[in-house]
Write a protein that binds this DNA or RNA. Structure first.
Lengths: 226, 226
DNA sequence: CTTGACATAGAACATATGTTCATTGTATAA
DNA sequence: TTATACAATGAACATATGTTCTATGTCAAG
């Protein structure tokens, strides 16, 4: 936690204002906006106190650049300190996916996501704009345990309608109107598809290609231990 | 999902530039900076094309405000579109951890992280300020495969010096001067510690409590399929 | 009481930055 | 060929914005 104890009351209020402004506006405030919000009528006083916040390693600014304030990581060293506010990717969180008995889940294309998970850019495929093809699902069941996907894990899905053998996919079974998470295999006769649980206690699901729609494949897993 | 198909090549390049600029600088670019990066010499052309991106619902701008471009969520409706600029946490990435043969890794407290991974708040324990207790390691080896941790996975470690039986810990073996990732068990005689690989082909490591230092435990796993 | 460091204040100034305007270029349809 | 819509261009302009300067106030130490 950044050490604010060395700051004056006015400096603390400025620091708080900058954070709040960033969250509300998605761009940093100007010197004048900080002054207006904190009750400082003089831009040189704002600038003086911003210098103080920089010296404390709490923020960084680029000289002669408007709105260049960034809030640093708590142990920021001022020059190369990383920003605590960065663009991240919000991926639609579309609910629960069955790794076990299939669940009735509508077509993700038809769903308006009201919930999002924030995914760091590090988890994304190489092209940032591919993020728009992604969504997230919470795994329910342990049928994919041998693919190292556990009950409760968050899986990141890239929308696509094809898969290679062995890839873990979100499969929509049209006749059954159910969605499940399984490893995809096109049988060697090329007439049937095998949806393979990765749990030795469970049997695969066989179906006709016409009955199956691949909605996406797993490109990432996020697990949190509580 | 943002539909870039309606954009001209120049507009797509501007859109990409804005995203990259945000990631690098933590504040938005100016009209002139966009022009310089994309090879447009006229600020009115940049402005014209930014208007187009706004009409497509990809970005938003505030009039007469410098650097007020924000990138909207893929289903942004212009007014209430979610900003992708949010607080994230940068966790020091301290290198590789052995899930197999122990590696010689110095004490994480002594290490200056020169690399960080950006982790979304969703992955953190409940208190965001606990982030300073965290660091990240890349797993090398598959000795924890039965704990659903694979070679190549990123593990999020919370610094702590104690563990409960069964928890996956970063263990420092003093005499051997080696660090390894294993499940921790205090044997029932309470005199020996068993560091248990979670791979049936591997033998546990037994050691005296005095020879062991727990540096942290796994609180999250991030896997990316390439 | 005096001095020095720190903080504040307003004004002026310089530059950064976004918007507007007149003109030209390109492509497509009539 | 002409007309229209869209895109591009450079210049000018207005405003936003950060920095500098001078002067004053406050407080603690000597």
């Amino acid at each position: 936690m950044p050490d604010l104890s060395k700051l004056s009351e006015r400096q603390r209020r400025m620091y708080d204002m900058i954070q709040e402004f960033l969250l509300e506006n998605s761009y940093p405030p100007s010197v004048r906006q900080i002054g207006e919000a904190v009750g400082i009528s003089s831009t040189s006083v704002v600038s003086y106190n911003l210098d103080k916040l920089e010296k404390e390693g709490l923020i960084a600014r680029d000289r002669d650049v408007s709105r260049s304030i960034r809030i640093l990581e708590q142990d920021g060293d001022g020059e190369n300190g990383r920003s605590r506010f960065q663009p991240v990717v919000n991926i639609p969180f579309l609910g629960v996916i069955a790794a076990g008995e299939p669940l009735l889940v509508p077509d993700p294309d038809m769903m308006d996501a009201e919930e999002y998970v924030t995914v760091s850019p590090d988890l994304l495929p190489s092209r940032a704009d591919a993020a728009r093809e992604l969504y997230a699902l919470r795994v329910k069941g342990d049928s994919m345990i041998d693919a190292l996907i556990d009950d409760g894990d968050l899986v990141i899905i890239r929308r696509q309608s094809t898969a290679n053998n062995g890839e873990t996919v979100v499969a929509w079974l049209k006749d059954e109107r159910e969605t499940t998470l399984k490893s995809f295999y096109l049988e060697s006769d090329r007439r049937r598809i095998r949806l393979q649980p990765r749990n030795p206690t469970m049997a695969p699901i066989y179906c006709e290609p016409a009955n199956l729609e691949i909605q996406g494949k797993v490109v990432g897993v996020v697990r949190r231990y509580d």
